[in-house]
């Protein structure tokens, strides 16, 4: 066990955990930030995506000991009132079916659009390819990412 001071969603939180514990489980089990989802545990499905600084990363593969001073943003901290352009677009297009993978999808999309505000369809497909949706909402996800890009202009 070790103690970590983590910068999460704009505040510093202290956590006692084994240094090998992935951020996914620190967020969920220790901090009860359950918006970040467990899907596969091996960085194949994207359900656990968070932002490390400005980059989308798989929190299931990020040990708490590797975070240090870097800022982590989860779905709960993406916006104060659920009004990030990507979140708004998700509601407008009515993307979710079961909804389980959508936080990860939104975190991937929001990091992607920050680096590439005017993406082509192909760039969207490539960026979103690491996030699986078993319900099959891919066509709506693409529509929502494009809408968020247009609204951010």
């Amino acid at each position: 066990m070790a103690s970590f001071n983590l910068k999460i969603n704009g505040t510093t939180l202290e956590v006692e955990a084994d240094p090998s514990t992935p951020m996914l489980w620190v967020l969920r089990d220790h901090l009860k930030l359950v918006g970040t989802k467990f899907g596969c545990g091996i960085a194949q499905c994207g359900a656990c995506t968070v932002h490390l600084e400005d980059n989308a990363v798989r929190s299931c593969q990020l040990p708490v000991s590797a975070v240090g001073d870097q800022k982590i943003t989860t779905i709960e901290g993406l916006s104060e009132n659920g009004d990030h352009p990507v979140q708004k677009a998700w509601l407008e297009v009515d993307v979710p079916q079961c909804g389980y993978c959508q936080a990860g999808q939104i975190m991937t999309a929001s990091a992607f659009l920050k680096n590439n505000p005017n993406p082509t369809d192909e760039e969207i497909s490539t960026a979103m390819n690491g996030n699986i949706c078993r319900c099959g909402t891919y066509t709506r996800i693409k529509k929502a990412v494009k809408l968020a890009a247009a609204d951010s202009k």
Binding site: T36, I75, E76, G82, W90, G99, Q102
Partner: peptide, 29 residues
């Protein structure tokens, strides 16, 4: 008429909705 998913706002903000999100007092895994 088109009515959006009633859980939409909770889904896109990561609220506890799913079974796996349950954390109760004194609960073990």
């Amino acid at each position: 008429t088109d009515r959006k998913n009633v859980d939409g706002p909770n889904i896109i903000t990561g609220k506890p909705l799913f079974g796996i999100d349950i954390y109760e007092e004194g609960m073990l895994t």
